[in-house]
Simulated assay, not measured.
Amino acid sequence: MSLTYLYQDRFVSKEELQISPEDRGYYFGDGVYEVFRVYHGRLYEAAAHFERWEKSAAALRIPLPLPSGELTGRLEELIRINGLSEGTVYMQVTRGAAPRSHPFPADTKPILMAYTTEARRPLNTMKEGISAVTMEDIRWLRCDLKTLNLLPNVLAKQHAVDQGAGDVILHRNGTVTECSASNIMIVKDGAVITHPANHLILHGITRAVVLRLAQGLGLSVRETPFTLKELRAADEVFITGTTVEVTPVISVDGVPVADGRPGEITRRLQNEFEKTISF
């Protein structure tokens, strides 16, 4: 079945999409995006996603063509039209089309586009865990903005693939930041520790949910930088993200994390997360 797309304020087929070759998203990655998880045909944590969407667009000075309240309804309709029960909604906006020139063009019209994708939950890796490798984080210093400039993340993920690993753990001069497309947390002596939500990491929606769940379990939560040395001495390591949910990391650079099995606190957080998606 051919999928329907949201283009500007209309629902169209893929063949009807009219994206100009002069779109600044092609030239400069001049745009922002969001990926929403869909469970049981419903957007998960929609308000948090839209808050980040608006923040990123404002920082890039891209006027949004539709207010978030109206756009929420359009995405819900897109899900219904495409019959999506479980998967994702990808949404992006670019500054628009204009002859190639670095300064903001005067009269462009932002281009909005969204589509749905069926995707199963990563139940196997959530149960068994993944391996990870480390890599220096040399991206720009506004990682808190969810822009289309993802080539550094693509290269990082490919580095993990080349090493036969599930993901890469990025660090700046030995201080762990995040992964290629997810946030990372460690557990030490019963405390959940993760990098603070500043300009060096993306403020993950699932990250925020998991921190709330940890606090609800009475766990100590510390948003503070930690080092590669502390990562390797952790009792547990796990990543969080829209598509990975809460996934254990059982080895780093070929060395097992603790006993090389998913830890108790990770399992407890997975169980609590499961409750949040059981509408």
Rank of each mutant, 00 (worst) to 15 (best):
E15C: 04
E77S: 12
M135N: 07
G31A: 05
W140V: 03
E274G: 11
E178W: 12
G73R: 15
E34H: 07
V35W: 10
G129A: 00
V210M: 11
D189G: 05
L66E: 12
A258M: 08
E54R: 11
A208L: 11
T247L: 04
T134N: 04
F279L: 13
I239P: 00
R80C: 10
P65H: 07
E118K: 14
A160F: 08
T175F: 11
G190V: 10
E70A: 12
F11I: 02
V187I: 15
P262V: 00
G164I: 07
D107T: 08
H159K: 15
V192H: 12
Q18P: 05
V192I: 11
V12D: 01
P262K: 02
G41E: 08
P67T: 02
L3K: 15
N82L: 10
T242H: 07
E264R: 14
T88Y: 14
Y39G: 08
H159T: 14
E77D: 10
R37P: 12
S180Y: 06
A208E: 15
F36V: 00
N173H: 12
C179D: 11
S68I: 05
A208G: 15
K229V: 15
I169Y: 01
S20G: 03
V161P: 03
Y44Q: 06
C143R: 13
I250M: 09
K229L: 15
L213G: 02
F36C: 00
Q92N: 06
V249M: 02
V209F: 04
L231F: 13
M126A: 03
C179E: 14
N183H: 11
V244G: 07
D259E: 13
L202F: 07
L66S: 13
C143N: 15
G166M: 07
L141R: 13
M135W: 07
T240Y: 00
V35P: 13
W53H: 00
P67V: 02
S56D: 05
V89N: 02
S56W: 04
P63S: 05
I193E: 01
S20E: 02
V246K: 01
A114P: 04
R268C: 08
G41K: 14
I130L: 04
R80G: 08
H49D: 02
A191R: 08
Y5W: 15
A119N: 13
I138L: 15
V255Y: 05
V187E: 10
G129D: 00
S101W: 10
H102D: 08
G174L: 08
S220W: 03
